[in-house]
Design a protein around this nucleic acid. Structure first.
Length: 777
DNA sequence: GATTTAGATATTTTT
DNA sequence: TATCTAAATC
């Protein structure tokens, strides 16, 4: 959303000596006078609790712009932190629309991690790092953990590297250095060896001159705590601190902020406890719940006027979130009662037979939306887990509906991109052992696991890096044959490339040469697998991305912290993404499929985090519903294939938590078009309102008697036929039971043996069937 | 050292 | 069902 073109910018107002209050206030339409006053003029801690769609970003940018326009601080004296690079970009753009070129000076506007990295680069030596330190990503972390587990002789099956990495990450999220981890938590890993592994991990990082993401903040905290003078410098530097999405901060981020805010307490946090959906990643909703205690004298304002959605959508979202305990409590209300459409569509809830029927219904809905002159890009399908996207993609491809999947594997996390980056990293910093290990045999140079192990053993004893030691070991006869040749070539090539870079070769040219000379492109060109071409394309894209940076170092810094490549948003396409990915976005029409127990709320969440997990799932439901402006459509199914297994599933408890007056609920089996097959049913929410009423006639039939049958033989049915039941077996059907098949019509079960079910059909002469359902009647 | 095969294992995702 | 990893075989 952009600022209204006719409205003067704050800097223009300031320049014209117009009282800025009048001008600024115009940017804060949804706020009452006291709230405007608070946003613009509060000195000292301020918490803005902003419900979904109440203009949270606008509040933050307006405050920032006002501070600068009124010269309370220079742009470089403000610190503005966000969670994502996207949010940071948006914030900068919006601020610049308000204050013009002054915005260029916003040096300290960025993500927690990018700002910490800036600070750490400047003072790295104080925590024992060189300022050229590399930043490891998740993949590197896991590989490092794997090495540690192997070195410690821990069974990697029982204690996986991923688990250890997760544990360390969790500790870092809570700002726990190895000496601070509570003793009993050590037993979460390998009978008490968790802390030891953590210590080794940290020691290794120091040797590698590297940091992981968590370290960026932890090192900052140590830096501040151990160097009061330095901290004081920052206190005088940052006159105002602004924080976006405060509900997502973890303990480390909270401590970091608190240290920086100690100076003058001019900290303004914006957030919504009801939209905290990253608990599994260390976010502490408690931070926002405790704000007034943490920052004494804090002013708190609540934004509850929503300009985005219809009353039905808001009522649905409020009702569901109302089932959570321990909220700060906000009630969203419609921003503009007068322009509210009295005929606004209620939230639609539809129960369907299975995932395919769900995809069919949603695609039909999208087509009819499109036929009324609306756009594809105004619709979104928001799922709980990415595996749910597949069915929609298949259906959309079949119908030719243009769509875009948002999320999915990230560009810089793809194997080929990481390989290419590893070459570049190794050229820049020879001590980067993880990069060395990654590409020393990629493409194949005959350097296998055993040769690499020898090198690693020497490196560990010597304390120097693999790249430095390899030439020395090659002098000896320790490594022979193809491995020796391969290693020699590898080291020579890396050195040669580094010389070329030092000799002034442009880094884009160098990257192409590396891919060519290393044989990497060759390897992919020979590869006949369907992915090979995409991989080559991705590498071209990488070169393209490289060309946008002046130096290799600048590029690598960008990649390490800003792990996204600005995807062209493309044309008129339906958006498919996870609920997590949808935060901060909105569409006129939003589909929310898969509202089934165990799927959403997700079983894992409930198993692992119990009530806390359930509440977070519920917040996810709240986020999902509030993405919709005009229409929200929720669906659930009776049968779902999960990991290839058919399962019958119950509607999500969240369906029961919707407000009756604002939703319209219908459930059907998908057979209702079949003459005489009155298995479809529809009803009001009351029919589905209580758990026991899933025994409403249609539903129980689906639950108790339905099994998916796959007909394999015979291809022609003459009065009777055999069906192979794919799931549950024929035992789900009783002998003599009347059944219905959507191609063969009605019949009666004659025999059920093994996996075969014999059915007498009333009609004869049916044609070939590939796969279809058999249903009890 | 490379290739094949069997077995286990399964969210959400940003930095 | 699909994907990744480790053992088994070439």
């Amino acid at each position: 959303m952009s600022a209204e073109p006719n409205r003067p910018s704050i800097s223009q107002l300031a320049a014209a000596r117009v009282p800025t209050d009048g001008g600024d206030a115009a940017y804060l339409d949804g706020l009452n006078p006291e709230q405007r006053e608070a946003v613009l003029h509060t000195e000292g801690p301020l918490l803005v609790l902003a419900g979904a769609g109440t203009g949270k970003t606008r509040v933050l940018t307006t405050r920032l712009a006002h501070i600068i326009a009124t010269r309370k601080a220079w742009p470089s004296q403000t610190l503005t932190v966000t969670f994502t690079n996207k949010a940071a970009r948006e914030m900068r753009e919006r601020a610049m629309q308000l204050i013009g070129p002054d915005g260029e000076g916003l040096r300290w506007l960025g993500t927690f991690h990018s700002i910490s990295a800036q600070i750490l680069r400047r003072h790295a030596e104080l925590v024992g790092l060189k300022s050229s330190f590399t930043i490891l990503d998740t993949d590197d972390q896991i590989r490092l953990c794997k090495q540690i587990i192997e070195a410690e002789n821990i069974d990697p099956k029982r204690w996986t590297p991923r688990f250890l990495a997760g544990l360390i990450d969790g500790w870092k999220n809570r700002a726990l250095t190895p000496d601070k981890v509570p003793g009993d938590e050590a037993y979460q890993f390998a009978d008490g060896r968790g802390i030891k592994c953590y210590e080794i991990y940290q020691a290794r990082l120091k040797v590698l001159n590297a940091c992981d993401f968590g370290d960026l903040l932890i090192h900052n905290i140590t830096l501040f705590q151990q160097n009061p003078d330095l901290l004081a410098d920052f206190h005088s530097k940052f006159k105002y601190i602004l924080v976006d999405e405060y509900q997502d901060t973890n303990v480390a981020q909270y401590l970091w902020l608190r240290l920086l805010a100690q100076g003058n307490s001019n900290i303004c946090c914006v957030g919504d406890d009801d939209q905290s959906i990253y608990g599994w990643r260390g976010a502490e909703v408690d931070n926002i719940l405790r704000f007034e205690k943490d920052f004494p004298g804090a002013k708190v304002i609540r934004l509850e006027r929503n300009y985005r959605s219809t009353k039905h959508i808001l009522a649905a979202a409020s009702s569901v979130i109302g089932f959570n305990k321990g909220r700060l409590g906000k009630t969203l209300y419609v921003g503009d009662e007068e322009s509210e459409d009295p005929d606004a569509e209620k939230v639609k809830v539809r129960g369907l037979w299975d995932g395919e029927a769900e995809a069919r219904l949603i695609s039909d809905d999208i087509e009819s939306w499109r036929n009324t002159g609306r756009k594809y890009e105004d619709c979104a399908v928001l799922v709980r887990a990415s595996w749910q996207m597949r069915l929609f993609e298949e259906r959309f491809i079949m119908l030719g509906i243009p769509y875009r999947v948002i999320g999915g594997p990230r560009f810089f996390e793809r194997a080929e991109i990481r390989d290419a980056l590893a070459y570049l990293r190794l050229i820049r910093s020879p001590d980067d052992d993880l990069a060395f290990e990654r590409v020393v045999n990629q493409p194949k140079r005959g350097v296998g696991a055993s040769s690499l192990q020898k090198l690693q053993r020497y490196a560990r004893e010597d304390g120097r890096s693999l790249f430095v030691l390899t030439p020395m070991i090659l002098q000896t006869d320790e490594i022979k044959g193809p491995a020796k040749r391969g290693l020699t070539q590898f080291v020579d090539q890396i050195n040669m490339w580094r010389d070329k870079l030092a000799g002034g070769m442009p880094h884009t040219d160098l990257a192409e040469i590396i891919l060519e000379e290393s044989g990497y492109t060759d390897m992919l060109q020979k590869d006949r697998s369907p992915q090979a071409q995409t991989r080559l394309d991705n590498l071209k894209e990488l070169i393209n991305a490289l060309s946008q940076f002046d130096t290799l170092t600048a590029f690598l810094e960008h990649v390490e912290l800003v792990m996204d490549v600005s995807g062209d948003s493309g044309g008129d396409e339906v958006q498919i993404m996870t609920l997590h990915g949808a935060k901060g976005l909105e569409w006129p029409l939003v589909f929310l499929p898969g509202w089934e127990e165990e799927v959403f709320p997700s079983r894992r969440s409930l198993d692992e985090s119990g009530m806390k997990g359930l509440e977070e799932e519920r917040r996810l439901a709240y986020v999902g519903i509030t993405r919709a402006r005009e229409s929200a459509r929720i669906t659930f199914v009776a049968n779902r294939q999960i990991y290839g297994r058919w399962q019958s599933v119950l509607p999500s408890r969240f369906v029961d938590e919707l407000p009756h007056e604002h939703v319209d609920v219908m459930a059907e089996t998908g057979y209702s078009t079949q003459p005489g097959a009155d298995t479809g049913f529809s009803g009001s929410i009351e029919d589905l309102g209580e758990r026991s009423t899933y025994e409403s006639p249609g539903w129980r039939r689906l639950q108790a008697n339905s099994k998916r049958g796959v007909a394999e033989a015979p291809t022609t049915i003459e009065g009777s036929g055999e069906l192979l039941a794919a799931s549950g077996g024929p035992s789900a059907f009783k002998i003599g039971q009347r059944v219905f098949h959507d191609k063969f019509g009605y019949g009666r079960v004659k025999a059920a043996e093994g996996t075969k079910l014999t059915v007498d059909f009333e009609k004869t002469g049916q044609k070939k069937v590939i796969s279809t359902f058999l249903q009890g009647v």
